[in-house]
């Protein structure tokens, strides 16, 4: 069990009669970049919310960082980072204040917070805007900041829900460079995306259609299997 960062079996979520996530099963190895693809409403966010302890599964089992998602959600939370689809840092707080707040509630010491703050500001080149409310930042910077803040406590696993939604290709590339850095440093990355070119950057991808995982393999294997040139083609064939 412990060789996997995430291990999921038959995970299901129903809202009334509607099955948003339908018995999905997969494993994610430690240090892997796992792409979680699917069209709008496929159930990506719902599945992710069950993994990070925000939503109770209707059926099935799941282990994240070695802990049961049903019974040990609070233990899981110490070791994971989450960047939600909707930007959710405090818009009325400054860059520094946001970092300090999340560092603080993850239990970091003052020294660690100061160090983290400097690190993040350097990395993202945010020094000129450090004292501005986050609301004033361009979307690309906001997203990168949100990613950095989600890792303020050095989690083993990071969950990113459409982290590059709506940002321009240049920022997306920067974003993926950071993802690679983090994966190289040993972090497991679980990322959902709409962009099929981004799927190519992942070690393995799963493709979700209407709540079910329809395909799961490395991008190259999938392209072979579906006799396609690009992931886009694979996706279109599956979705049909």
């Amino acid at each position: 069990m412990n060789e996997y960062a995430i291990k999921v079996e038959g995970l299901t979520k129903r809202f009334g009669d509607f099955t948003a996530v339908d018995a999905i099963t997969f494993n994610v190895s430690k240090g892997e970049i796992f792409g979680f693809l699917g069209a709008n409403g496929a159930g990506k966010t719902t599945a992710m919310r069950m993994l990070i302890g925000l939503s109770k599964p209707t059926e099935g089992t799941g282990y994240v960082a070695g802990f049961d998602i049903r019974t040990e959600a609070e233990k899981i939370k110490k070791g994971i980072g989450y960047m939600s689809q909707k930007f959710s840092l405090y818009n009325d707080l400054t860059v520094k204040e946001n970092i300090r707040f999340y560092g603080g509630i993850y239990g970091l010491s003052k020294k660690q917070i100061t160090k983290k703050t400097t690190e993040i500001m350097e990395e993202l080149g945010l020094f000129e805007v450090a004292k501005k409310p986050v609301a004033a930042l361009p979307l690309g910077w906001k997203q990168r900041l949100a990613f950095a803040v989600s890792m303020v406590h050095d989690p083993e696993i990071v969950f990113l829900d459409e982290p590059t939604g709506g940002v321009d290709p240049h920022v997306r590339r920067q974003f993926w460079e950071t993802i690679y850095q983090q994966a190289d440093a040993g972090r497991t990355i679980f990322v959902t995306t709409h962009y099929m070119d981004e799927a190519e950057y992942c070690d393995r991808v799963s493709i979700m259609v209407a709540g079910k995982v329809e395909a799961l393999d490395s991008p190259d294997n999938l392209k072979n299997q579906y006799d396609s040139e690009t992931m886009d083609e694979v996706f279109l064939k599956l979705a049909r």
Binding site: L54, K77, S84, S88, L89, N91
Partner: peptide, 13 residues
């Protein structure tokens, strides 16, 4: 409404 509570709920607080 703005979603920040979710970000707090994924912390071990």
């Amino acid at each position: 409404e703005i979603g920040t509570i979710e970000q707090i709920n994924v912390t071990p607080i």
